[in-house]
Design a protein around this nucleic acid. Sequence first.
DNA 1: TCTATTGGTTGGAGCGCTCCAATGCTGTAG
DNA 2: CTACAGCATTGGAGCGCTCCAACCAATAGA
Lengths: 333, 333
Amino acid sequence: MVRPTMEDVAARAGVSRALVSLVMRGSPKVSDQRRNAVLKAAEELGYSPHAMARSLASRTSHVLGVMVSDLHNAFFAEVVDGLDAVASEQGFDLIINTGGRSPARERRAVHSLLSFRPAGLALLSPVVPSAAIKSAADQTAVVLVARSSRLSTVDTINDDGERGIALAVDHLVSLGHTRIAHLDGGEGTQSAPRRRGYLAAMEAHGLPPRVVASEYTDAAGAKAVQELLRDGEVPTALVCCNDFNAVGAISALEEAGFRVPQDVSVVGYDNTSLAALRHVSLTTIDQPRNEFGRLAAEALLQRVRGERTDPVRHLLHPSLVVRNTTAAPGGPR
Amino acid sequence: MVRPTMEDVAARAGVSRALVSLVMRGSPKVSDQRRNAVLKAAEELGYSPHAMARSLASRTSHVLGVMVSDLHNAFFAEVVDGLDAVASEQGFDLIINTGGRSPARERRAVHSLLSFRPAGLALLSPVVPSAAIKSAADQTAVVLVARSSRLSTVDTINDDGERGIALAVDHLVSLGHTRIAHLDGGEGTQSAPRRRGYLAAMEAHGLPPRVVASEYTDAAGAKAVQELLRDGEVPTALVCCNDFNAVGAISALEEAGFRVPQDVSVVGYDNTSLAALRHVSLTTIDQPRNEFGRLAAEALLQRVRGERTDPVRHLLHPSLVVRNTTAAPGGPR
DNA sequence: TCTATTGGTTGGAGCGCTCCAATGCTGTAG
DNA sequence: CTACAGCATTGGAGCGCTCCAACCAATAGA
């Protein structure tokens, strides 16, 4: 349980501690003979450098902190994949932490991450107040994913929600739909641009909009459809605020005797793995999640390397994924 | 961007560095007057202790490393929640890392985690070879979740897969089913005990077993059902290796004109959030995931505190969650 | 032959903190 | 008035490492 130090390796290899340090950092100015001796000694002792001591001494960090607001959401898993790919390519380690969608827990999580003095911090869809983000940004490079901000010291990566919803509406219109309703995400992040996108797209097509209050869950989607049915006026297509909401809407429709897509077409948002299941096979809007992560890591690393101090605002293009929940009104084909 | 140190706080409060250290660690042997002065100075400077320097100096760590084999799987999110709850309660921080289900990446992830010299390490369903686990266990306390091991230096937390599948079979038998097939998880972890449980339960009921090779994905579940149908002999109930597999099986059944549960009953395993969706509403076996995490954290902390050196082997009881994919053969009621 | 130059190697200082032994300071007993 | 606790407080050493200036051949140039 007691790990060897650089000193131990040096003693075993018959060299100085500084030389071991050079070898460990892959310096070219070490003779092959010594290098091999050091590597051999390290191997034999099972030595690996102490990351904390290293960063303390070098006054630099090779760690990026990542605060995931909700680990249960697979959306973030892919963002993390993207972050990880770029980070590890550049020799950075990720330390991840979760905030459980509660501002208090998130605050603690950010605090804990900062106590490791990371080179940068990626906040994935954080719910903490802007002031907390600002204070984090005073201490390290910060990038926000799926949350916008006007702070001049933080970078942001978002998808263009207006455009995404417009893709959905355009798709439905091109199939021949005219009565298209939107199940709204309410207070959720990103629901405002999605609503705006819906209203703008409907207007552009000269169609009357119909926004139904809902939320980002399948239960809410089902409830919204039930209300819609009670009102008697059933649209021929539904643009939902996300995939869960869409799946809930679909089950409520089917329970009420409507067939999807023959009677009603449904479009989700996010292209979660759920949407891809053949049992669901949901037409939806895909966000380039992996790209979110990659860009977030790159934004951080640019700041770390001092290449940039101006904030960047990435607005990525979503894309339409057509599956089996949309068709022309009145039946497929 | 340059953070204040203990020295700065000490200077501002007009005390020594050591006194600040005592205050930061909540020592009782500090006069209220000085304590307040220090806290005030720290507040004004926006100081928070440097976790790495602290752990370097104290030769102790308040960090637990967590290697999640697959972030995309929400199963682990709940395990992490459990870990987090216990850890933070005891003043420990979690640093999470992911292995992406690849032994090479996992090895790197574990290495990276170890370079922080964590007090303990939780490996969630790791796929690395046993030797790698052993070498980690030489360096710190290790607990394995959803993977068994005979290593005497590591603790393990698993669900009783045999019992879980038996619950499923018993449920189906009690509904009147006799032709019950098992879609097997193949090479996946935990698929062996599940298969054993199935065979034992069928035998106990005096029924002929039927194991169909499959995998832990919805595509594999669909494929297995298609093969079953091609063979002509359709069972009245399917016990699947996990929820994804079950959902795939259901869509293949429906595509072939069978109704679930009227014609065929289907049971999943894991009780993922997918199973709870009303559109799916899958009868399944629940594993106490949060409890996995809590027990894992506790096992680690017991070792850290030196309360125990013998390994513990937790085998938790799964439970049956009845939803709408199971019914008596020949239709509900 | 002597001085530069180069490339490899080293000891020492110091990163921000904890821990310990030692210090100063009360207050009380002798 | 001295002695001695008992307590709050402090300087210094040291955790494992990096970085720098200094050092030491060995070779090249004059």
